[in-house]
Design a protein around this nucleic acid. Structure first.
Lengths: 213, 213
DNA sequence: TGCTGTACCGTACAACGTACGCTACCGTCG
DNA sequence: CGACGGTAGCGTACGTTGTACGGTACAGCA
């Protein structure tokens, strides 16, 4: 059996990144491996290494590619722009789980991430926060948004069954507060819940800005 | 060469969990593997599987073990108790990186986690929040604390060199706001920064509580 | 003194990232 | 038009991981 070989130039970094991102988006980052990726592209595994140094580098690149999709709001008050931006970020993290894991490692590194950071800092400074306050606020917003997305992403449908049973089974004498709010605990992680927390933080920033000026 | 065998009852679940947690704490979760763990305990690898079903289960158990260490503040106003509790949680997450990865998957599952959640909910309800508000507030605080710890944990000393150079090299015309606050960006992730964000959120909750009552 | 149940664990396999070096082909030059 | 050299493609193989399977040694009992 002759070795079947693909024509030169069939693959490009771009095609590799796109295929990798598609796998990571649809089946999760853990489903992305070099053999599978090569199979999807119809090339030999080692061919990939002519375009990408390591798998980690590939993940960094698809992360950057996904982050570049983040739309930065241009209109509205500074608080509205913040709320929009981080709402968009949450949606992006849910659509591209790879970003969460890869970008948690080196936040604000790639050009796309820096551009978004600049927009956020711009809004915060427009609101009247000084440099230090703005950076702290940015960290808070990012931490909250990533943390929120992280929990949401880990929720699996089949887990929820067990979780529900687990929560409902708590002893009201031992854990009175958990028992008292059980129904609300079961619907955690919603978009609406995220928005409430986000507004809470942004309102706090607005008040901070008023005090400063 | 006769097979050297350890006496029966030499290992216990407890010893396994303790050794596993020690590895995860000191060298990170990625350094924890079954061969290494068995080596540390002086037993054969497969012996471990007499006490633990899978590696994932083991990680769940050491997570729960670590979470149980969380000290729940008993004194102070409700906002003080919240600040203490989540400050403690951040410290715990930094000391036990395993918790971050494992518990992100199934938050508020084990008895220890539920007990802490109950305390937090108790404080929030004592402040005057209703059930739904308290649960949303809890989610917000957890997301923020986990997100913050996640970024902190991923910071490696050698990365910081590159990062510093990277940030300092931005074009002030393209990213004016990033350029303007560069020095503050370089000191992100500190404990102090975390406290500021935490207080911001808790102050917001206090205001919410006032509005409710 | 045997026998039996079970705790211990050696071996082996599948999946992974990726180093090494062979090979087929394209473009060029004679 | 034919040979040939450089390079893109990739088969093979190795080290590392989790863990299934089944063998083996020993405690406790008859």
């Amino acid at each position: 059996m002759k070795t079947q070989r693909v024509a030169r130039g069939t693959v490009t970094v771009d095609a590799i990144e796109e295929a990798a991102l598609r796998i990571a988006d649809s089946e999760g980052l853990e489903a992305l491996n070099m053999r599978r990726l090569a199979g999807d592209l119809g090339v030999g595994v080692m061919t990939l290494y002519g375009y990408v140094r390591t798998k980690d580098e590939l993940i960094e690149r698809i992360t950057e590619r996904a982050i570049a999709e983040l739309t930065i709001p241009q209109t509205g008050t500074w608080t509205e722009r913040l709320e929009q931006l981080f709402g968009n970020l949450r949606a992006l993290l849910l659509a591209h789980p790879a970003v969460l894991y890869a970008d948690a490692a080196r936040p604000l590194s790639g050009p796309g991430a820096l551009q978004s950071a600049d927009a956020a800092l711009g809004a915060l400074r427009a609101g009247g926060l000084d440099g230090e306050q703005a950076v702290t606020a940015l960290s808070t917003l990012i931490a909250y948004t990533f943390g929120s997305a992280m929990f949401r992403l880990h929720q699996r449908a089949d887990d929820h069954q067990d979780y529900s049973k687990h929560i409902r089974g708590v002893d009201p004498d031992e854990l009175p507060n958990v028992a008292a709010v059980t129904p609300h605990l079961l619907s955690r992680g919603s978009e609406a819940e995220f928005r409430v927390g986000l507004r809470l933080i942004i309102d706090g920033l607005a008040r901070q800005a008023e005090g400063t000026s």
